[in-house]
Design a binder for these strands. Structure first.
Lengths: 335, 335
DNA sequence: TCGTGATGGTAAAAGGTTTTATCAGATTCA
DNA sequence: TGAATCTGATAAAACCTTTTACCATCACGA
């Protein structure tokens, strides 16, 4: 119960208990310098016995490696951030790195506050992550004295960014629809001021060719409804497949089709984007959709930061990671 | 481009530039000790001019306050964690505290790894947060040498916990339904091995009295559908209001009612729980629901940790925070 | 002139670790 | 035997800050 009991054991304690000097203790524990195998074992055993764990602060102060990184995000609900953070964490935790999570709310003042705190803490690197690719960071990140990696956001071209390959995702969707025998494929998507929206739309157009049609709107179920109402009340040929810009739109589309008595997937196949499970699994029928592999994105960013912090150099520029297709029931024809 | 340029300015640099000793510089900057107003200003100005920021590592090493806390979570998708983390962060950032986010995945090995890293980093406290109230932490947290606060989780009774007041939330829902003239209120909820489910159900029963009926199932839309099908195909009086255990169930319920041609809110009022906006806003009609005030929960936890770390003592035990009602259209009768 | 008390400032220790340079002793080689 | 080399261990410096204890200096009253 005394103060003495609560204070952590230091390397001094180890050295004293093992009857060696502090430097020998340090060398033995870290395998540095020259140490007799026998003493090395003895020191290690003593250290374990008395429950010695090195003070990370002291170590970092000296080595100038804090083994911590900062993650700046502007995502309030965490739908995108948390899977990425999990990926980052996954590759870092075993290397003994920890991550500071900083919610900036897109507020420059807050961003600055967090950034300065991170710098004061001597973090080994910073990962910036956003909710859309083309949103610039709320604060200048490009001339920091430490490595910066962008995930789900595109930094300056001489920096390192990881983003989903939207074009690939769109092709995946269209090919899947074609393979299940659909020929009149419509694209209902979000606002065209999103670069991701434009990329997907372009890939869709390239892949579909003749007869491609893109309807831009917002990211809501309501827009899905509305678009279906509009498309199916006009004259002319009707689509037999719809590629949606995200799962919410897809859900609206599916509900609207059902309301009209149009069968999914028999009459019209529907495919989403995001694989946001709470939506995708609960549509009727469950939604086939494109997964952006957010966790993998995080892993790659973690790996990059790790390499940079270790002084290796990493190719700059934007890496586009392939998406994957999650097949459920809304397109029929699972092989 | 030299090393010299990239190295951060230290208090040495400030002292030299201001022509004072290191201790004077420190005293001037921190307002400790006795310093002449004139020198104090000069030192501060010099510090600002050369861009001095104290090294948090060195400071923490000495003061034994790292100004960092750890947040342990097992929530992968962040729906609950991120709003709470935002609350925590909100009250901490201005005090200069940062938070380590540690995703444990409910894996004891991972939890231990993270916990040890946090302890090695001398964090000032730990916040444990879960996805359900009655899930014990994947690792023993009760006899740590630093303060621990539980949020959305209940720790041992001599610890500090913040949870939503489920009973209050349930009463809020029932009273709202009663006030809009409903009398036959049914409760469709999740699995009864959740303590939150039982608390809400009990409060519901107390509040409704005669005729209360609780249907336990799982947290899915599907269960909402199924329950409605069952209830409306049996003989006898039908409910005119349904209190759902979460928003997903509520959405299933609303969809099922619409499928049956039963009007919401005219024939049956529906109220949800969680205020998970992506669901609640997109139901047709938009869902009136109970909000658990997750951010406030986080704020309170942050405040508690702050007080504990400052050595003040805080009442132990579980604090149940009131919920709030978010009125949309699914109960009609907005005043 | 001597004590007393305030004032403004400083040297040095402390915090816990890693690393460099050095040292004593043993071994090898000529 | 003496010099050179190797081995294992250590003292001390370094990282950057805060804090304690101490030291001049000056003014004041007796």
């Amino acid at each position: 119960m005394t103060d003495k009991d609560i204070r952590r054991r230091t390397i001094h304690d180890v050295a004293k208990a093992a009857g060696v000097s502090i430097s020998t203790a340090s060398n033995a524990l870290n395998g540095t310098g020259r140490t007799n195998a026998e003493t090395r074992e003895r020191v290690k055993r003593v250290a374990k016995d008395i429950g010695f764990r090195p003070n990370a602060l002291a170590r970092s102060l000296l080595t100038k490696r804090s083994h911590a990184i900062g993650m700046l995000t502007n995502d309030t609900y965490g739908r995108l951030t948390l899977p990425m953070a999990a990926g980052v964490s996954e590759v870092l935790v075993d290397q003994g790195l920890s991550v500071f999570l900083c919610a900036t709310n897109n507020d420059p003042r807050l961003a600055r506050l967090h950034l300065e705190a991170l710098l004061d803490r001597q973090v080994d690197g910073i990962i910036f992550t956003a909710t859309r690719l083309d949103l610039p960071p709320p604060i200048e990140l490009s001339k920091l004295p430490i490595p910066v990696v962008y995930v789900f956001a595109e930094g300056p071209s001489d920096h390192i960014s990881f983003v989903p390959d939207d074009a690939h995702g769109a092709r995946l969707a269209v090919e899947h629809l074609k393979n299940s025998g659909r020929s009149r494929i419509l694209h209902i998507t979000g606002p065209d001021d999103y670069v991701a929206v434009r990329r997907r739309a372009n890939a869709y157009r390239d892949s579909v060719g003749e007869g491609a049609e893109v309807l831009y709107g917002d990211w809501s179920e309501e827009w899905g409804h509305f678009a279906i109402d509009a498309v199916f009340s006009r004259t002319g040929e009707k689509p037999d497949a719809i590629f949606c810009g995200n799962d919410e739109i897809a859900r609206g589309v599916i509900d609207a089709l059902r309301d009209k008595g149009i069968g999914v997937p028999n009459d019209v196949a529907v495919i989403g984007f995001d694989n946001w499970e709470v939506i995708a699994k609960q549509t009727r029928p469950p939604l086939t959709t494109v997964d952006m592999e957010l966790k993998e994105l995080g892993r790659r960013a973690g790996l990059a930061i790790l390499a940079l912090a270790a002084g290796e150099d990493v190719d700059t520029g934007t890496t586009r990671l392939p998406c994957s297709l999650v097949v459920r029931k809304s397109c029929g024809g699972e092989l």
